[in-house]
Amino acid sequence: MLELVDLSKKFKQLYAVKNVNMFVERGEIIGLLGPNGAGKSTAISMISSLAEPTSGDVRFHNESILKKPGDFRNIVGVIPQEIALYTDLTADENLQFFGRMYRLKGSTLKNKINEILDLVGLTDRRKDVVKTFSGGMKRRLNIGVALLHDPELLIMDEPTVGIDPQSRNYILETVKRLNKERDMTVIYTSHYMEEVEFLCDRIYIMDHGNLIASGTNEEIKRILSSEKTISIKSDQLNEQFISLIQEHPLVNRVVTTDKEITLMVAKEVSMFVELTKFAEQAGIELTSVHNRTPTLEDVFLHLTGRALRD
C-alpha cells in the first residue's frame, strides 16, 4: 500500500533521515521506534506529504505521493506530535472547525463529531474549552480530529507523550479498535518499546536517521539469539564496580542507570561468579542479579550501544 524508497532528508549538514526503506501493507499496524532525535518525525512529515524529501520517494499504490498529494491527503489522517488544537475553543468547536476544513457540513458533521467524541471518550467534556483539559484528554482530542474524514491510513507521531497511564492505555486500545473494527492501517511512532511491542504487527527501529532493524517483534528479538541480558540491581553502585564490569573481556555492552546495570554477554557465558567477586572488591552489596528475556530495548542496546531512552 505504502512504500518508502531510499528516503532521505537533509537539514544543512545533518541527515535527519537517511536512505530509509519501508513498506506498509493494508490493515497493518506498523511501529516506528527510536529515541528522541532519531528522525521519526521527519520521516512522518515526508510520509504525510508535508515535507519534501531531499532524495528518495514515498509511493502510495505505486505512485509517488508528491505527484498528487491531494488524493493521498484525502485518505490519510495525521496526528502530529504536538497538540494541534485551538486551546481557546471547546472540543466541539475544534471538531467543527477541522470538520469544515474537510468540507463536512450539517448533520453529517454533527453525527461524525458525536461519534468521535464517543470514541475518544470526551462526550461529557465536549462543551469545555480545551485549555482546561488534562494532557491525556488533549491527546485524545488530538487523535479525534484526525479521524473526522475517516482516513484509511492513520499516521501517529508519539501520541502518548507526557500523559497518565489510563489515557495511555485508552489510546492504545483505541488504536487497536480502529485497526480491527474499521480496518485502518496505522503507522505508530514511539520511543516506548512496550507500546510498539503491544500494538504493532511489524516494527522498524531508527537511530540517527538510519533504519537499524525491522521485522516482527519476534524477528527482531531473534537478532539477540546469540546474546543474553543480565540485569544487576543494587542501591550502592559505584564507579569501581562499573569499571570492573566494563573492562571484563566477555562483556559486550553495558548500560548503567542509578540503581541498575544492564549488560550483554554471549549466551553461553555465565557471569555470576565474576559479578559477586567484583561486588566484593568494590565493597558493595547486590540486591539482585538475573538473566532477562530480551526486549526491544535490549535489541536497541545491542545495535547501538545506547539505551533507547537516553
Binding site: S48, E82, F98
Partner: peptide
C-alpha cells in the same frame, strides 16, 4: 505552524 495546526489545514482540502 509550530503546533501543527497549520499542517492540519494544509492536509485538508482547504
Amino acid at each position: 505552524k509550530r503546533e501543527g495546526i497549520w499542517d492540519r489545514m494544509i492536509l485538508s482540502p482547504v
